[in-house]
C-alpha cells in the first residue's frame, strides 16, 4: 500500500457519495470543498464509509485533517497500515 493507493481509495469513497462529480481533475493540495460540491452531510458519509470499509475511526476533532486529498493521505496512512484497500477507481 502506497500513498497513491490511499488517494485512490478516498476518491472511490467520494465517487460513491457524489457520483455526478468529476474527480479526475482534483488538485490534492486544494480543499475538496472548493473543488467539488460536498456538504456536511456528504462529509459525514466519507467518515462513515471509512469506518464501514476499513474500521477507521475519525473523531470529529480530526475532521479538519480530511479537508484536502493530501491531508486525507497523511492522516489515514498510519490508520490504514496493513489493511487491504478497495481501489475500484484504478481499474
Amino acid at each position: 500500500m502506497n500513498d497513491s493507493d490511499i488517494q485512490i481509495a478516498i476518491k472511490d469513497i467520494i465517487a460513491q457519495i457524489a457520483p455526478d462529480e468529476d474527480l479526475s481533475q482534483l488538485d490534492p493540495a486544494v480543499r475538496l470543498r472548493e473543488q467539488i460540491e460536498l456538504d456536511s452531510m456528504d462529509f459525514l458519509d466519507i467518515v462513515m464509509e471509512l469506518r464501514k470499509l476499513y474500521g477507521v475511526q475519525v473523531p470529529e476533532a480530526d475532521y479538519k485533517e480530511l479537508a484536502t486529498l493530501d491531508g486525507c493521505v497523511n492522516y489515514l496512512r498510519p490508520k490504514l497500515a496493513g489493511k487491504t484497500l478497495h481501489c475500484a477507481a484504478r481499474v
Partner: peptide, 18 residues
Amino acid sequence: GIGIVNRHVLAAAAESAP
C-alpha cells in the same frame, strides 16, 4: 429523516470505536 439519523444516530456512531 436523513438529518435526524445523521445528527442523532450516525454522528454518535462515527465517534465510537468501530
